[in-house]
Design a protein around this nucleic acid. Structure first.
Length: 431
RNA sequence: GGAGGGAUGGCAGAGCGGCCGAAUGCGAGGCUCUUGAAAAGCCUUGGGAGUGCAAGCUCCCCGUGGGUUCAAAUCCCACUCCCUCCGCCA
């Protein structure tokens, strides 16, 4: 969340900054009001508590001096003060809960550099690489769901039979290709990132830390019985790994990566992009993440973007990079770049990576701080993360792009070793 | 799933309902002594909040949340996590 103190010292500036994210000013002011209310009550309660303590001490002293029956007046007074205190605390807990909820729901301030805009239509294409609509032959204009069925490497019907629609089932070389993508992405980043295999079912606190809860509960799968949530991205467990820790400055930046399955209900997207692999409830992804000082964030953001672009380039896919405008920026995001690859078969740009800087928004929620090497107060960290590679859409673009006129798929060389030496997908799979 | 045991500061480890935000040891930092180092001695050493120009003052935190009490690290209840044993199991 954002720093409450901003609401006291820079209310108007905060309102203005959040207005860029189309947050109504009332929401900000409501939080500010709750905060001042809370402080007022808390100050009163502190005075009261201080009195109770002092009086209790008197009672104790009197009893030690004169035996058990002593301290009558002070005891009575303290009891009365204690009752008042209890009533105050009652009020405080109500205000506190409201304030907390209001703060958790306020989105992060957008970076100065993020372009203004109302919706995704206003995202800025920073660059487009390798895209030439005339270079594709007719054999590359089949959508991946048709190719997948033809080669028996994708079986959406059977996936649906098991789990419902939007739960894809890969098979044969198609399944191996999924795994190959993950291995490739992990290997490409192993020079600088520590691989983690985290749990994928997490507590509420973990989802709260990244900003997913309380606002977007409908988008996540929840296991009622055990009160656990299926992660929508590895960002969730990786961020919470360091929650409530004070990291020595020398350890920064912390660099982590993880391959995990990701689960999304896609509640708000019913009926959109439902064909094939364009939008699915469960998919594999390799995430890279950094925890750092504020002054390291910008360079790391650029590096994460480079690395994400690197995977796409290695696979030889045309792509473009979008600078996400304030109106389309996520709740926790200060600045965000998306990478889209071009899929010729369905003739669409597919979002395959989102590389984001959260400033201290997530770290404050998760209480991830660092201790400056030169002394001084503990500081809140910045967090960043990005998809190094998200499988199904890349899989789709790859299959469409590399389809040959005979219907087989010629694989880019960087994948050969991950497919047990295969250089192509021919569909000659055993059932 | 069953039976026990535990959770205290960076770590180890005391703690009688009041004098405990917390002994002691280790570690870390600073200083003194020394040509330098070691040893020794002295001092410092958690996080968070409020208020104040500041020095400061006040409050909260002994796994988490409730309760009892004039007063809770200490008593009671619930939960979480860890350990040991039994059972089950990839």
């Amino acid at each position: 969340m954002i720093d409450v103190r901003r609401l006291r010292t820079d209310l108007e500036a905060t309102e203005a900054a959040l207005a860029r994210k189309r947050v109504p000013a009332e929401e900000v002011r409501r939080a500010a009001k709750l905060d001042s209310q809370h402080r007022q009550l808390a100050t009163k309660a502190e005075e009261m508590r201080s009195r109770v303590k002092a009086l209790s001490k008197q009672v104790g002293d009197a009893m030690r001096a004169g035996g058990t029956g002593q301290g009558g007046t002070a005891r009575e007074e303290s009891r009365r003060a204690g009752d008042e205190l209890a009533a105050l605390e009652q009020q405080i807990s109500v205000v506190e809960a409201q304030l907390r909820d209001a703060m958790l729901r306020l989105p992060n301030l957008p970076s100065q550099d993020a372009p203004d805009g109302a919706s995704e239509k206003d995202n800025v294409v920073i660059r487009t690489v390798g895209y030439d609509p005339d270079r594709y032959g007719p054999h590359q204009r089949s959508p991946h769901w048709e190719i997948g069925t033809e080669l028996q490497i994708l079986d959406l019907e059977r996936g649906a039979k098991i789990s419902g629609s939007m739960f894809p089932l890969f098979r044969g070389q198609g399944a191996t290709l999924v795994r190959a993508h993950c291995q490739l992405a992990l290997d490409r980043n192993s020079d600088a990132f520590t691989e983690v295999r985290p749990p994928t079912l997490v507590r509420t606190a973990a989802l709260e830390a990244v900003g997913q809860l309380p606002k977007f509960a409908d988008d996540a799968y929840h296991l009622e019985r055990d009160d656990l949530w299926a992660i929508p991205t590895a960002e969730v467990p990786l961020t919470s790994m360091r929650a409530n820790e004070i990291i020595p400055e020398e350890e920064l930046p912390v660099r982590l990566m993880a391959y995990t399955p990701c689960y999304r209900r896609e509640a708000g997207a019913a009926g959109r992009d439902t064909r094939g692999l364009l939008r699915v409830h469960e998919f594999d992804k390799v995430e890279i993440l950094a925890i750092c000082r504020r002054d390291q964030a910008q360079a790391l953001h650029a590096e994460l973007l480079d690395r994400a672009v690197g995977s796409v380039t290695a696979l030889g896919l045309p792509y473009r990079v979008l600078d996400i405008c304030t109106g389309d920026l996520g709740q926790s995001h200060a600045r965000q770049f998306d990478i889209e690859v071009y899929a010729p078969g369905c003739d669409m740009w597919l979002e395959v990576s989102s590389v984001s800087w959260f400033s201290d928004y997530q770290a404050r929620r998760a209480a991830i701080r660092y201790r400056p090497a030169g002394g001084g107060p503990v500081q809140i960290c910045d967090t960043l993360n990005g998809s190094a590679l998200a499988v199904p859409r890349i899989w789709a673009a790859l299959v469409e792009t590399y389809r040959q006129s005979d219907g087989t798929i010629e694989l880019p060389s960087c994948l050969h070793s991950y497919l047990r030496g295969s250089t192509s997908i021919t569909g000659s799979v055993r059932s």
